[in-house]
């Protein structure tokens, strides 16, 4: 073999191995880090989702907001059909209010409660997360255009 062919072969196999390893790591990591989004009705139907980290979205139910201390809050998220009780410890965004759209991230517990560790902040008070719109449309409660 000439040195040119040899060096090309080495490069080829080296790149093949690197590509294989890289693709495996990427796919493994991607599957590890996916966070699914659910609406309340969807989540209640799929009780096997308990214990996973996920996002939950809908409207904050009217008259559901309570605070235990200055930083522990209780409220429910509804899509008009079903409700899920949420406990959240932390800081609430400026635009958090009852009857407004909200998306929280956390764990759906075995007792059917949702422990949130993040309330996703949005800036516009008329802004509705697209997932929430989708959720409300699915339950037939969407009143926008």
């Amino acid at each position: 073999m000439t040195s040119l062919v040899k060096s090309r072969l080495i490069k080829f196999f080296l790149s093949l191995i690197i590509v294989l390893i890289a693709v495996l790591i990427i796919i493994f990591n991607l599957r590890e880090n996916i966070i699914y989004f659910y609406g309340p009705t969807e989540l209640i139907k799929n009780s096997d989702k308990q214990g996973q980290i996920m996002r939950l979205g809908g409207l904050v139910s009217v008259d559901s907001f309570q605070n235990e201390t200055d930083s522990i809050f209780y409220f429910s998220i509804t899509d008009g059909e079903n409700e899920i009780d949420v406990k959240y410890e932390g800081i609430l965004p400026n635009l958090f209010a009852e009857d407004k759209g909200v998306v929280v991230e956390g764990v759906y517990m075995n007792d059917g409660r949702f422990i949130a560790n993040k309330v996703l902040a949005k800036h516009d008070e008329n802004y509705m997360p697209p997932e929430v719109i989708e959720t409300l449309k699915k339950s037939g409660k969407w009143q926008g255009e």
Partner: peptide, 17 residues
């Protein structure tokens, strides 16, 4: 189906590279 990819995916995958 809506889902998000967590930032950890990027940091853990890219760091060794």
């Amino acid at each position: 189906k809506s889902l998000t990819v967590g930032p950890k995916y990027y940091s853990t995958t890219i760091a060794p590279i």
